[in-house]
Design a binder for these strands. Structure first.
Length: 283
DNA sequence: ATGATTTGACCGCA
DNA sequence: TGCGGTCAAATCAT
């Protein structure tokens, strides 16, 4: 990859991160407005944060406008869902299991084509959204299997966000996490699972140990074990600090972003030990 | 009983 | 045709 396209990818990523931060902050704003208590200063702060994010995005765009073709929006993905698998109440709860076997024909489903995707490497798998694992596959020439997650609210709110997690061969303590599509779900109803400092050492094991606990199971166990400092407010501050550092350091090139645009899981051997801080606000 | 995970089968795309 | 992504029945966990 040449420097220009690399910079472009980074820029797209930064922009995307900012948009997501804006989205998350908006949600915080909503939460604050729901709460009747004396949170005036917090609301002011949130408003300033939103303003700053918008300004930064504008500055970014004015520096070198991003062409529409560069922005592969998540909305595009929905156009392919013509078979209306989306509205289908799948197994969510699976209490309404198929009446009788539907072997052979599962009803047409379109693979979503292009959604906004980005990949991070991290030892941390948690983020503010709740995911449900829907598959795991052994990938050709890959030592570790890939796990597939979708947003828990896929069927209740039509959220199309998915992610794929795979251990890095070069650094088995690290995971390559590919996010596909943005969340459209309203997470207000659900308590966000913000667990910023959880590290997973025993998540996706190699193919011989596939029967080991799943990612989510591991997450839950970690959740129990790491219950330190669960203050959402301080977590948000952390996120913001990280974000500011991230934004500043991106001036000097930080290789936290591998791709943006088409789904691509190819990750070249890059040493980016601090990628996890990027992931902190990447969803 | 309900919801999440596992895992083989199915499907679309290159 | 093979690979990767998704589905969905079976199973597990709470």
């Amino acid at each position: 990859m040449d420097i220009a396209s690399n910079n472009k990818a980074i820029k797209l990523k930064v922009r995307d991160q900012l948009l997501q931060c804006h989205e998350m902050t908006t949600k915080v704003q909503q939460l604050l407005s729901q709460d009747g208590s004396d949170l005036g200063p917090a609301k002011d702060l949130v408003e300033k944060i939103l303003g700053s994010i918008s300004d930064t995005i504008s500055a970014l765009d004015s520096f070198e406008p991003i062409s529409p073709s560069d922005l592969v929006t998540a909305a595009e993905g929905s156009q392919n869902a013509s078979c209306d698998n989306d509205g289908k109440l799948e197994d969510s709860g699976d209490s309404q299991k198929r009446l009788g076997p539907v072997k052979g024909k599962r009803g047409c489903y379109k693979r979503k084509k292009k959604s906004e995707t980005w990949t991070v490497e991290s030892t941390v798998l948690e983020d503010t959204f709740s995911w449900r694992k829907y598959g795991q596959k052994q990938i050709l020439n890959a030592k570790f299997p890939r796990s597939y997650f979708r947003c828990t609210h896929k069927y209740t709110q039509g959220c199309k966000a998915t992610k794929q997690v795979q251990k890095l061969e070069s650094e088995p303590r690290m995971f390559s996490i590919t996010y596909i599509g943005n969340h459209t779900c309203n997470t207000n109803e659900v308590t966000p699972k913000i667990k910023p400092c959880i590290h997973h050492d025993e998540i996706i094991t190699d193919s011989e140990e596939i029967q080991s606990p799943s990612l989510m199971t591991s997450m839950k166990e970690e959740e129990k074990n790491h219950h330190h400092g669960s203050s959402t407010e301080s977590d948000l501050q952390l996120v913001w600090q990280e974000m500011l550092v991230f934004a500043e350091e991106h001036h000097h090139h930080h290789e936290a972003v591998y791709g943006c645009g088409e789904t691509s899981t190819s990750i070249n051997g890059l040493d980016s030990a601090d990628l996890w801080s990027c992931q902190q606000f990447s969803v």
